[in-house]
Design a protein around this nucleic acid. Sequence first.
DNA 1: CCGTTTGAGGCAAACGATTGTAACAAGAGT
DNA 2: ACTCTTGTTACAATCGTTTGCCTCAAACGG
Lengths: 334, 334
Amino acid sequence: MAGVHPSTVSRVLRGKENIPIPEATRQRIKKAAKDLKYLPDERARALRLGKSHTIGLVVPDISNVFFAEIAKSIEIESYKAGYTLVVCDTNEEQEKEVHFVNNLISRGVDGLIIAPVQDSDGHIFDLKEKKYPFVLIDRCFEDMEANAIVSDNEDAAFKAVAYLARLGHKRVGFLSGRQNIYTIRKRLAGYKKAVEEYNLERNEALICGNGFTFESGYEATLEILSLPNPSTALLISGNIITLGAIKAILEKGLNIPDDISMIGFTDNIVSPYLVCPLTTISHPLREMGKKAFDLLIKHVESKDNLPFTEEIIKTQFHVRRSTDRVLSQVEAAW
Amino acid sequence: MAGVHPSTVSRVLRGKENIPIPEATRQRIKKAAKDLKYLPDERARALRLGKSHTIGLVVPDISNVFFAEIAKSIEIESYKAGYTLVVCDTNEEQEKEVHFVNNLISRGVDGLIIAPVQDSDGHIFDLKEKKYPFVLIDRCFEDMEANAIVSDNEDAAFKAVAYLARLGHKRVGFLSGRQNIYTIRKRLAGYKKAVEEYNLERNEALICGNGFTFESGYEATLEILSLPNPSTALLISGNIITLGAIKAILEKGLNIPDDISMIGFTDNIVSPYLVCPLTTISHPLREMGKKAFDLLIKHVESKDNLPFTEEIIKTQFHVRRSTDRVLSQVEAAW
DNA sequence: CCGTTTGAGGCAAACGATTGTAACAAGAGT
DNA sequence: ACTCTTGTTACAATCGTTTGCCTCAAACGG
């Protein structure tokens, strides 16, 4: 429409280049571009340039606020940095994760941020081998060197159980998520360490559950509540699980915190407004997202092989009514 | 590596085509592909084929469970149908929406599903003009013919207010979200209709708020509560707003439902477990997502110009304790 | 023994943008 | 008048696939 060669259009629209093009032509091209609502074909550009300005994010459940927050912060960072984010939801299915990782590579994303399902790690090793830039978030593989931004789950679990111990609790239950997952293993480790240190009841039956669903939280809580000696407090590994637990507790006609105290892993905007305002551990999700993005971009934009970075971020503890000190427990403590 | 021309590789790996290729060669190529962990370059394929098997989803806030649920269901459908979903979060910012829509088109997505910010609609008209397949979800433009899957907000609001009226409430407040948005306008219409029909108090001061944030819900509720005659019930347009409202109510030392009843637009997994189990209107989000996807794909895969489809889906009403009948109100009703 | 079919797979163009180089013209210098 | 700049813009190759067409050789028929 401007009567010039595509290469000239490219030079004008892309701006840079030292090749001088007279203002008259520039204007003609720009006008034509605007009139035609011309949008460059990013796939062609990516093909030619070997760079897509796109990064992929793979999470196990986007409908869980935990990952939705992470996704949101990464999205905001990418937008600011001129990258487009492609979010994929694996639904905690390993097969889907492999599919998405391959798919994202196929479409030429410049890098990946992954919160892996952790049923296997072959595809992650492949990434390392291909020297494809990636960052693990929230969950990492302990036997693999890689970029990772995680929170200090072990420390958080330890402190939470310690807090309960100091309130006088002797039997603390642990509602677990899927047990092969990094965060859960760490939390369990912290739990066990505190159980040792404070000499709480050691009983495998107090460790219950294997899944991040509402039902799994519900079932696991019922199991713990029907023990001969149910726990007087629960440490709960996930916000959806927490709701299942609440359902079980209410159904049993019990009261929080009078009959049972609760601490939830992962704080969110509703935590203060639940049936009983929930004491929680909050992960700095926005910060984690930003750090993961910055780290990824550093690797994407550097030509040389940067060393891997692994960062463990401290969590915060929010005390609310679900761990109010209860008379009978205080007595027991003395 | 297999010592054959790329075209032969393509024919073998793509399967189809009637050109016969001997089994020996086939195996050689497949083995090489596996050994090399060959992944086809989707951008090159998309460029050549004019089809990317990708669709774009543009939502105003992915960290809101409402949209996260929609995203999840569309993601599941796309996966099943062999499409990849690219999710973009506009953060309720018009500028970002325009950016994302253009960006998605640039990268050659086959179609778009959009829950628009609705501060403007020029870019949506552009899509129509270019005959680009798209489906609006949750929010549509009343003066524009387009594919849309929305829920019946007017009906839902009417029924909610009617329910409150029958409980004896005379002054019902409406906590609004951003008022230029389709859903909000429809809800407001339903609210006003019920106010007329049941002869409730007509007072613009009872309609309050303009935003989907926690703070906006908090502020608006404080305003209503500090009226000379505060409302005895609230209809609340969004789950984050609801939490802000609860904060305000609790801070004022009021009780739900004794001092004030509440009905929340949009149900979610926590609704039954809030300080006071919340009566809600639920939108069939999974169904909406699936319908939007199916409709989009129908348009994407049809060569001819299909007529636009607009579907309004009924909501459901969940009665919980936040609308328990309260003595003083019952008396007032008689 | 020669022409024709068939099997096997290579060639080349195309998708749209980018970029090093070439080409052409006008003007400057000698 | 002729070369040499310099300014302006076109050409062509490239990225990785796909696909219509072509080629080449072997096999086959008469």
